[in-house]
């Protein structure tokens, strides 16, 4: 199953295995679309607009675009 790119825009993917759970992405997300626990992180699918602000603000390159859509 794939989360398809909305309106043909790029999709965003968090790589939880590489994440430090620092919260930069949560702070900059205009849609409150990222859930961050002690050592667990995921995008709230229905809120994400693929704006990419989280990708730009991730200090350690853990969030990235995935043009093909992200497998759930």
């Amino acid at each position: 199953m794939f989360r398809q790119a909305k309106n043909g825009k790029l999709m965003i993917e968090i790589l939880p295995d590489k994440c430090d759970f620092c919260g930069c992405c949560v702070g900059v997300c205009p849609e409150d679309a990222i859930e961050l626990k002690e050592a667990e992180i995921f995008i709230i699918d229905k809120r994400c607009t693929n704006c990419a602000k989280c990708v730009w603000s991730c200090p350690i390159e853990v969030i990235r675009f995935n043009k093909e859509g992200v497998s759930l």
Partner: peptide, 9 residues
């Protein structure tokens, strides 16, 4: 929510 330009990463 903080503008990404103001976020020191």
């Amino acid at each position: 929510h903080i503008h990404f330009k103001d976020m020191e990463c």
